Computed example of a mutant assay.
Amino acid sequence: MWETFIEYRLYPTYIFELIAAISGIFYLYSKKKPAKADKLIVFTINLIFVIDLFAIIYSVYYHVYDYAYIEFIKETPFRTNLWIYNILTLVTGSLFTVYFLMQTQSGKLKKAIGTLVVIYIISSIIHFFTSDVFFLTTSAYVYIYGAFLICISIAAYYLELVRTERILNFRRELPLYISIGLIIYQLGITPLFIFQRYVGVSEDFSEVYGNVLDLANFFMYSVFAFGFLKVIFEIKRSRRKALN
């Protein structure tokens, strides 16, 4: 099975995800008392790595071993890994949004966007149960709605940043680095995801989409890792100044 990972170059994305996940764990250890938001973002990135890796192993196991020892799965809708990615999309869209909501002090914004998150979760679950997309394809509704929530929650965070003195210490603003990675990723992938549904039969487009998706993932997780390490450096530098 691991030969398949090497042959089809399935591993680079997961290496970057792992680097970001490990950097996040080091970030938590570098803080004496990490905030709930810090724990949430590190948990989210590690969750993405674990579920993403499980999904690809699940798929490769099917193509290489034809579900040996668990053949009963072949007769069920769970034979593909698309249901895993649909769940992951819903969970990460919600968690990233909540993370940025935790960065703002505006009660009105929190209430408004929080309500949208609840609607997103409930409506997505209903969508999964009332349509056949859950097992057949990545849900456009869940993906696009989640991207929208992430973007407006980031906008709320930026508004909080410019309105307060936090902007003076932007180098220690981990959410800033997380937001940059997410925004570039969403701007690069969401339009292609929408067009993919209309030109899905084009092999050339599928190749372009796959390459852009890989690059977007490399960039996003690299920025996440850089953000964690940068803030760790800033924390240590502040502590050294305090001792002097």
Rank of each mutant, 00 (worst) to 15 (best):
I189M: 15
F16P: 01
I150F: 03
D66Y: 13
F54C: 04
I25Y: 10
L174M: 06
F135P: 03
P77C: 01
Y209A: 07
G114H: 10
F224Y: 15
F16G: 00
I189S: 12
P77Q: 01
V42H: 06
F5C: 02
D132P: 01
G200K: 12
T190R: 00
V201C: 00
I126V: 15
H63E: 00
I15P: 00
I119Y: 13
I70Y: 08
I15C: 01
V212R: 06
L149N: 09
I154Y: 00
R163I: 05
I48Q: 12
K32R: 10
I57A: 13
F219Q: 08
F224T: 07
A147H: 04
L28H: 02
I19C: 09
F226H: 00
D66I: 02
K32S: 05
G107F: 03
I183H: 00
Y85S: 04
F228E: 07
V117W: 12
L109I: 11
A21W: 14
I178C: 06
L213G: 06
A35Q: 14
S59A: 07
G146V: 05
S179W: 09
Y11E: 08
Q196H: 10
V201S: 13
I15G: 04
T76Y: 05
R239D: 11
V118N: 12
T138K: 10
I122V: 15
G210N: 12
I119Q: 08
Y221G: 03
L18Q: 07
N244L: 09
I121T: 13
Y58T: 00
V60S: 03
V60M: 05
F224I: 02
K33L: 08
L82F: 11
V199R: 07
G188M: 12
D204S: 08
H127L: 05
A155Q: 01
K108D: 13
E173L: 09
R9C: 00
Y185F: 13
Y141M: 13
Y157K: 05
S206Y: 11
L187D: 09
I183N: 02
N244K: 10
I51S: 06
K111F: 14
F224G: 02
L161N: 11
R197S: 02
F26I: 04
Y11I: 11
I235H: 01
L161G: 09
Y8H: 02
I119S: 14
I84K: 00
I167M: 14
S30Q: 09
N217M: 12
G107S: 13
N244F: 07
N211E: 08
Y209R: 11
L18F: 15
I19E: 10
V223M: 13
L40S: 10
S202H: 07
I87M: 11
T97K: 01
I19L: 14
S59Y: 09
I15N: 02
T138D: 15
R79Q: 04
Y141S: 11
Y58F: 14
I126L: 15
N244P: 00
Y8G: 00
A68K: 14
K36F: 15
D214H: 10
M1Y: 06
R9F: 02
D132R: 04
I232F: 04
D66T: 03
S131P: 03
N86G: 07
F129I: 11
R197Q: 07
I183S: 05
L95D: 08
Q196E: 07
V91N: 02
F128T: 09
A35M: 15
I19T: 10
G181I: 01
G200W: 13
I126A: 15
L168R: 13
I48D: 12
E207I: 05
